[in-house]
C-alpha cells in the first residue's frame, strides 16, 4: 500500500459518499446516470467474486463490501425509492448500456491473463469499468446544468483514476515483476474518458452555468 493507492481509494470512497449524500439528504439523483450506476454494480459484482476465495487484508475486504453495498444501494434508490426516482432524468439517460456489456465480455474471453472463471470475470470488470462512465458523460452533455454535488462526484471519480495511475507507476519502480498490461491499458482508457469529463467540469465553473 503506497500513498497514491490509499489516496486513490479514499477519493473513490469520497465520490461514492458524495453521491449517497445527494441521494439521501436532497432526495435527488438529477444529473446522475442510472445506466452508469448499474454498470458499476456489475463491475463490482464480477470483480469482487474473489472475496470468497482470496484474502488480501481486512482493509481490502472491507472496501470491497463498501463498494458492493454502495453501488447496489445507489441503483436501488434510483429505481425504487419514490422521491429519488422522480428526480431521475429518464428521458435523457438513454445510452444503450447493454451494448457495452457484451463487447467487454467477448473481449475478456479473448484477452485475459488466465482462462479461469474468476479471472475472465475479473478482466471483464476491468474492461467494463473503463467504459462505464460513458452513459454519465452523455447525460452530462445533454442536461447542461449540473449541480455542485454531481460535479464533485465526477471530479472525485476522475481524481481516483489519476491517483491509481500514479500508484501503478510507483509500484512499477518499487516492486519487482509488477507488470499488468491489461489493468494498465483499461485504466488508461478510463482515465482518458474522465479527462473529457473534466473538460466539461471546468467549463461549468469557468463559463458560469451551462456547458456549451
Amino acid at each position: 500500500m503506497n500513498i497514491f493507492r490509499l489516496a486513490g481509494d479514499m477519493t473513490h470512497l469520497a465520490s461514492v459518499l458524495v453521491l449517497l449524500l445527494k441521494i439521501h439528504t436532497i432526495k435527488s439523483c438529477a444529473g446522475v446516470s442510472l445506466r452508469t450506476q448499474e454498470l458499476y454494480a456489475i463491475v463490482f459484482a464480477t470483480r469482487y467474486l474473489d472475496i470468497f476465495t482470496s484474502f488480501v487484508s481486512v482493509y481490502n475486504t472491507f472496501m470491497k463490501l463498501v463498494f458492493l453495498g454502495s453501488s447496489f444501494s445507489i441503483v436501488w434508490y434510483m429505481r425504487y425509492h419514490k422521491a429519488v426516482h422522480r428526480t431521475y432524468d429518464r428521458e435523457q439517460d438513454t445510452f444503450r448500456h447493454w451494448f457495452l456489456v457484451l463487447p467487454c465480455l467477448v473481449l475478456a474471453l479473448l484477452i485475459h491473463e488466465k482462462f479461469t472463471f474468476l479471472e475472465v470475470l475479473w478482466t471483464f470488470s476491468l474492461y467494463l469499468e473503463a467504459v462505464a462512465i460513458l452513459p454519465q458523460l452523455v447525460l452530462l452533455q445533454r442536461t447542461r446544468n449540473i449541480d455542485n454535488l454531481t460535479g464533485q462526484y465526477i471530479f472525485l471519480l476522475g481524481g481516483y483514476r489519476g491517483l491509481y495511475i500514479l500508484n501503478w507507476i510507483y509500484r512499477y519502480f518499487t516492486e519487482p515483476h509488477f507488470v499488468h498490461w491489461i489493468t494498465w491499458i483499461a485504466g488508461l482508457v478510463q482515465t482518458l474518458l474522465y479527462a473529457d469529463f473534466f473538460y466539461y467540469y471546468f467549463l461549468r465553473f469557468i463559463g458560469g452555468r451551462g456547458v456549451e
Binding site: T53, K64, L118, N167
Partner: peptide
C-alpha cells in the same frame, strides 16, 4: 506464484 495474489487492488 499464487494465482490471485496479484489482485490486491480494488
Amino acid at each position: 506464484h499464487d494465482e490471485y495474489h496479484e489482485h490486491d487492488e480494488l
